[in-house]
Design a protein around this nucleic acid. Structure first.
Lengths: 202, 202
DNA sequence: TTGTGTATATTCACTGGATAGTATACATAA
DNA sequence: TTATGTATACTATCCAGTGAATATACACAA
């Protein structure tokens, strides 16, 4: 049972989240996670079979909240597809200005574990990005865009590119540049569709 | 002096390159680099002050060859800016199909060392990407594109995005998708320029 | 109400191995 | 003989994972 109100397992994942996101996987010891969670290492190993298991749980815990945030930014206003997509980038730029921001946890973990393609964390990261891509694809398809998967992937590429570039340069304005590119690509795709559907033009 | 023809320092950097690129920075011990270079650890520490110093040398050694490769791909044929830019992505996709490919060493290192913004490797990585961006900008400016820096950054974002995405999904076709997006953005920028300069249209 | 068994949850103390970096000495060439 | 380069052997620390015991909660019988 938990010492505080929050169950032990949740506290461990929360500690892992803070530490892994900030310092990377190999940069954080299991002892450090246990200490931050206020638990002994042996307790941690009661709840998680191994460090790899803990890493997987860390990423799994970021999946839904992340997607929800993107959907929220996108849906804040119904001001047309190009503007909605661009708004995601602008909000991301705002997040990236916070000093604790360290890029995308999924991408950073996959970069660190690139030599272990079968690692559970890699699968969770890939699945997360696929879910994001699929959400974009469905959204674009509903607007009658001719090749919604291609456009979804192009937006994803700009998004993940901006994670990488901003992490390197510490200059969030790249995210606004990416947003402009995304705006242009979506607009061009809308202009090329067969019959305008359901939405007034911007 | 070197045991073989190649000087010791070069052999160490070459060993570091192979190991760090494949397994990441924290995934490789100094002992492993020394062993691969056929040198004792003490010798390594004669040539490099610390592991961080070695990491910096590893990245510095990748800077020019990388840029030269991009320039070569771009310049293979003079078939118009959009096609030239897209060819870089297609060649990159071909590289990415090799089993030893593990993304961009600069981006992966920056992802791993994201919590050490002052690390020399971060500065070298940032400088490398800036040099690439600047080469694109100059190239675009010579073609009379209105906002060459913005276009250069958008191409860079697509490129680095494809590094990240392909590393995660192990699906190089994303690079071709990125190339198509880059093609479209360059073409749109060309269409919008004031007066067509120096080059026949495609 | 009290006792008892059992599964869950947690702790302390430890192991075996890896790791970054060093003290010291030896070799070789200008 | 002095600067450069290389080797052997060492230190101090950290780290993933484990063995064995203990504590708590709860179901159920007396």
């Amino acid at each position: 049972m938990a010492r505080s109100g929050i169950p032990t397992r949740e506290r461990i994942i929360s500690a892992a989240n803070a530490l892994f996101y900030n310092d990377g996987i190999r940069g954080v010891s299991v002892d450090a996670v246990a200490a931050r969670a206020g638990v002994t290492k042996r307790t941690l190993y009661y709840h998680f079979r191994s460090k790899d298991d803990l890493v997987a749980a860390y990423l799994a815990g970021r999946d839904q909240p992340n997607l929800a945030l993107f959907r929220q930014w996108f849906g804040e206003k119904d001001d047309g597809l190009p503007a909605q997509v661009e708004r995601v980038f602008r909000n991301l730029a705002r997040s990236a200005r916070h000093p604790k921001w360290k890029g995308c946890g999924f991408l950073r973990t996959s970069a660190e574990l690139a030599n272990m393609p079968g690692h559970p964390a890699m699968k969770i990261g890939a699945a997360h990005k696929k879910r994001f891509e699929e959400w974009l694809r469905v959204t674009f398809a509903a607007e009658g865009i001719a090749d919604p998967l291609r456009l979804a992937r192009q937006i994803l590429l700009l998004l993940d590119g901006s994670f990488a570039v901003v992490l390197l340069h510490r200059d969030p304005s790249y995210m606004e540049t990416a947003g402009q590119a995304a705006h242009a690509l979506v607009e061009a795709a809308l202009a090329g569709r067969a019959k305008p559907q359901s939405r007034r033009a911007r």
